[in-house]
């Protein structure tokens, strides 16, 4: 049986969600292809009439668009941005992102829960970016989220799984897919999150700030596949102390 996961009734075999910020449109296509990503995030901004380049022309057609609500400081603004994104006409997926803190860009869980409820009620497939808090995760589940997207570390920091223990709690204690978002800086960190049982990884800056963008996209793809396989295989136990030989303990030459 194929190992897939479902969001809003859509089945995905790729567990790599790619952000499209911070790099050129030409590289977006190459990165999506190398990543084999089936979901890509976009932002909504005021249109500049002088700019004729449309990012949608650089994204393969079979890829699901996940617009985010970046720039929203409260639930009301996030709902407005989500409605505009849907009106552009590329589906009803939305990543709710609400932050008032401009230094660490931490998500406001309270407002995120409110926006998730409003948007889920309007028929959106809502993926909220959140601070990894169990009560917030349960409230988001109740509000109708299709998955939760806890942060590994501050956005764009490439610092890795700083919130590892708390993400593990979310994976263990909620029924929603957990998509680890923000802060993942290296393939090994994406792999580790997948070994923990994450449903998928979202990455942008790690790819965009690499020397070779398409090659890093491919490296992440492979790391995510490896981590997922490791999780499904069941990670071996860790000894508290001592050692346990893997070689046979009989038949030594000196016997």
């Amino acid at each position: 049986m194929a190992d897939t996961f479902t969001l809003g009734g859509k089945e995905f075999s790729s567990r790599f969600i790619l952000g499209s910020g911070k790099y050129s449109m030409e590289l977006i296509r190459a990165a999506v292809e190398q990543a084999e990503a089936q979901i890509i995030t976009l932002a909504v901004r005021r249109t500049n009439t002088k700019e004729n380049e449309n990012i949608l022309d650089y994204i393969p057609e079979n890829v699901t668009l996940l617009p985010n609500t970046s720039g929203a400081r409260n639930a009301k603004e996030a709902v407005r941005i989500a409605r505009m994104a849907r009106e552009i006409g590329c589906g009803d997926f939305v990543k709710v992102e609400i932050m008032r803190d401009s230094k660490y860009l931490l998500p406001d869980n309270q407002e995120t829960i409110l926006a998730t409820k409003m948007l889920a009620d309007e028929g959106f497939v809502v993926l909220p970016y959140m601070y990894p808090d169990l009560y917030a995760a349960r409230a988001l589940e109740e509000a109708g989220a299709a998955a939760i997207m806890p942060l590994a570390a501050p956005i764009g920091s490439n610092k890795g799984l700083a919130t590892k223990e708390f993400i593990q709690i979310l994976i263990d204690e909620t029924d929603l897919p957990v998509i680890v978002d923000a802060g993942i800086g290296r393939p090994s960190q994406a792999c580790e999150a997948m070994e923990m049982g994450a449903a998928a990884i979202m990455a942008n800056t790690a790819i965009a700030t690499a020397k070779d963008v398409p090659a890093m996209a491919e490296a992440f793809k492979n790391a995510i596949i490896a981590g997922r396989k490791g999780y499904l295989a069941g990670i071996g136990r860790v000894l508290e102390r001592g050692a346990s030989a893997s070689d046979p303990l009989t038949g030594f030459l000196r016997d």
Binding site: G19, S20, G21, K22, Y23, M25, I28, T41, L42, A43, V44, R45, R46, T47, N54, I55, L56, L65, P67, N68, S70, G71, M84, A85, I88, C90, E97, M99, L105, Y129, I155, G156, D181, A182, M202, A203, N204, T205, A208
Partner: peptide, 12 residues
């Protein structure tokens, strides 16, 4: 009036 479109983005 606001006129918007998609741009590249992951998180702000």
């Amino acid at each position: 009036v606001e006129v918007v479109s998609f741009v590249g983005g992951g998180s702000r």
